[in-house]
Design a protein around this nucleic acid. Structure first.
Lengths: 253, 253
DNA sequence: TGAATTTGTCTATTGTTCTAGACAACCAAA
DNA sequence: TTTGGTTGTCTAGAACAATAGACAAATTCA
């Protein structure tokens, strides 16, 4: 029988399962644990940490929730962390369709919305007069229970006046457009940058200080070529990678 | 009734009293809480954090144990943090013994070490020829989880060749000497100065710009009177005060 | 197929943390 | 001295964390 680790403290005000989860997460990221992509069996971990199997299971469940681990009945528990979700950027880019199949539990929240005078860059992108009324939508998307992106989108307030309500009902931009009479739209341009997460990003995307965010600035147009949406989206860089098929020039379809 | 803080999370695997204790410790050190030296009453804190008074009491008890707070029945709870640890300078000065009893969680780190040619003042103090090989140890000490001192020590590389490894194992100069065959030593001289912390001090001792450091230059000798250690130590002046019993002339014992 | 291994679920019990309320002890000031 | 405010102590119960054991369900391999 292996010696229990002295690192786990009882009666410290920190639950054993949390101490174990934190330790496993760190060791996984260091490659000390589960380096083959496979974790030791629950019983082995329980012996190693000197706790009951159920306590280890609670720790594992927390890491599964975080997306660090994946447990398969009969097979074992596997390291999931390094795999990023691939977000394809095409002419017909739809958020939920892009991630469907790669993740379970895709969901979007409407955090805030308002009607305001268009800022200058928004007005230019949407080909509106500066100061025209636009709808601003603040949304956040989750995959597998973890936030992956935070978007700020603007729409012409005249053409898409029911946008916020439509999104609240459908939780999808594509479905909201359809509800408002726009059945198809295309990605006109996407600009990608990266920077350190600011405090807002940390909170919205549940990141750790120092994390990196990918920022995309996108313009969508209808089939006539008129801009319908201008958006700035921040992706958690450790959870998402952007895929641009055919160097971004693919015709789509 | 005041709004409870959103920072306290339930069911997170971290006990509420520990979250509250950690938060109070941080706010006290920032001066946001108890800045007058007096803490708000337990009931007020309980309302602020949205928990029962007893939960706050558990958090306070932990900080009292750490030496951050002091509770007086009938009067209130007071900030004890500003009280400096007393570091006695005697003929038999040993760092960890001097602070034992005043603090819990005394610890020392080895930050760096090297063998180098003795600088002129080091050579003179250790009675070596200038340029003789000496071992330089860069160490840092913590009390109650806060860094209190940063020392640079030199030893004769011939006589104490295993010093760095010994310190790494024992984390104590006294114990390292013993391991290398020196069972007793005396403080020959100590020189004390003070200055503003430089950027290195700020980083090493986690100080705020403008902070003051006490600098001691010390020579330790063996029972024959031969110098065994020359060291320059910087103390965080807001956390440590130096005590020289009997004007530094006490015989020790 | 059958055995071994592994994760998933259930029940029960114990210990720790948190809440709730009451009252004692102590201090300071009216 | 009395009053109000504060910390200290006690009891009891609810919520959460951890242990223990048993067995189900799924996978792998001989």
């Amino acid at each position: 029988m292996q010696m229990a680790e002295a690192i786990i403290e009882r009666r410290s005000g920190v639950a054993l399962w949390r101490q174990i989860a934190d330790r496993m997460r760190r060791e996984i990221s260091q490659g000390t644990l589960g380096s083959e992509g496979r974790m030791p069996p629950e019983m082995a971990l329980a012996e190693r940490f000197g706790v009951n199997r159920h306590t280890v299971r609670t720790a594992i469940a927390a890491l599964v929730q975080e997306g660090v681990l994946r447990a398969e009945q009969g097979r074992g528990t596997f390291v999931e962390g390094r795999k990023r979700l691939a977000y394809p950027i095409r002419n017909r880019t739809r958020f939920s369709e892009g991630l469907a199949g790669q993740s379970r539990g895709l969901a979007a929240d409407l955090l805030d919305h308002a009607v305001e005078a268009a800022p200058i860059d928004v007005a230019r992108a949407l080909k509106l007069a500066p100061g025209s009324p636009v709808i601003r939508l603040e949304t956040r998307s989750h995959a597998d229970g973890r936030p992956v992106s935070r978007a700020r989108s603007w729409f012409d307030a005249h053409r898409f006046s029911g946008m916020a309500e439509a999104f609240e009902g459908t939780r999808s931009i594509t479905a909201s457009f359809r509800k408002l009479g726009l059945v198809d739209y295309l990605r006109q341009s996407t600009t990608v940058t990266a920077r350190h997460a600011d405090t807002g990003d940390l909170k919205d995307l549940k990141l750790s200080p120092g994390a990196i965010v990918l920022v995309t600035i996108a313009i969508n147009v209808d089939t006539e070529g008129s801009p319908v949406q201008y958006s700035e989206t921040r992706f958690a860089a450790d959870r998402i990678e952007l895929h641009i098929p055919g160097a971004g020039t693919e015709a789509g379809g």
